[in-house]
Design a protein around this nucleic acid. Structure first.
Lengths: 184, 184
DNA sequence: TCACAATCTATCCATATGGATAGTTTGTCA
DNA sequence: TGACAAACTATCCATATGGATAGATTGTGA
């Protein structure tokens, strides 16, 4: 059950609640009342702070990026295996955050308002992957792209199927593959 | 505008309409009325044929698998590059079918009723990838897994961002990577 | 302390929804 | 041709929703 936020923390609670509700129940069940219930506030506060459901979601995507920056070492990804295993751990400890991001990626397809925000999210992960590869002397954009796609696919499948070990094994296999290109 | 289906085709129209509505507007907008409107029938027919929204979705996933089997050469995937490029083409010509599948994958996470159906879908794609790799003499499950994850990631990004060329480039890079393992 | 703005709640309202119900239409078979 | 079941429509109903509105609460600064 949600504890009621302190006075003035309502807005922030609604943003975090939006991420949780979407991850747990899908975008379908994100209503003014469901998110307010989760945040422990009145549903009219959604309209007050955000004016619309879409604006709430924009704020939630920004928040997800913030939390991702805290969570996975996007800024200091280390080498490929460290980066990949950090992703697996992040998904295992915060599956909802990642599920939310995938939900919003699909939604961005349908609603242009979300596109810049979702692209910023994607770019953060892509950059981290490029950085990780560069640590191994790989500077080929095509290699970075396929490595990122592989990690994206592994993470999506971990979110959907819940097998962290699959991601870890997959990261190892990716590292072995890339080892052929240059010493990884 | 939907043309009304012939008498007796209502059920099938609703199933195909469900895929279209979900892909275009998300699971959130899949209501009895929206899907019926799309199918050109009365909304009461959803309850009549399916009893519930979830049952309609189960039928829709089955239908998606069927259409995927028709669409992409799942049974005869050829080599890796042929399989990968076929996927890119399939996404480009039928983005909605693939978007629907990703939506349902995320939904399966929240609703166990969909899990077996979504896993069957995933397994079809995974098998095709294994088959494609085997054509090149690669029989390592870990390699198959990372190749499938990479394709999954490429396809997801193509659905989300719409760049078919990215998928094609990515497939080429994947083939180059795997060429190091054995001649691809 | 008081005034004010921001935050918040409770409630009302119009509309949309899932689903039930009664009736109509269609196709099949004897 | 008529009976019957399946398919289908139109309509009603109870409930949920987004959003507006009025009032209450809180914090800040003079």
């Amino acid at each position: 059950m949600p504890t009621e936020p302190s006075y003035g923390e309502g807005r922030q609670s609604l943003v975090d609640a939006a991420i949780a509700v979407v991850a747990e129940s899908g975008l379908r069940n994100l209503t003014y009342r469901s998110v307010a219930r989760r945040a422990g506030v009145s549903h009219a506060l959604v309209a007050h702070h955000f004016g619309s459901r879409d604006s709430l979601l924009v704020a939630a995507v920004e928040r997800a990026l913030e939390r991702s920056l805290d969570e996975a070492p996007l800024e200091d990804s280390g080498g490929l295996e460290r980066w990949g295993q950090a992703l697996a751990r992040s998904v295992a400890t915060h599956p909802d955050l990642h599920a939310f991001q995938f939900e919003m990626a699909l939604e961005a397809r349908r609603n242009p308002e979300f596109q810049p925000h979702v692209e910023r999210l994607y770019e953060a992960y892509r950059s981290a992957t490029r950085r990780a590869l560069r640590r191994h002397g790989i500077d080929d954009p095509a290699m970075a792209q396929i490595a990122f796609a592989a990690l994206d696919g592994l993470v999506f499948q971990q979110v959907v199927l819940g097998h962290e070990s699959w991601t870890r094994d997959g990261v190892r296999a990716l590292r072995r593959l890339l080892a052929h290109v240059v010493g990884v």
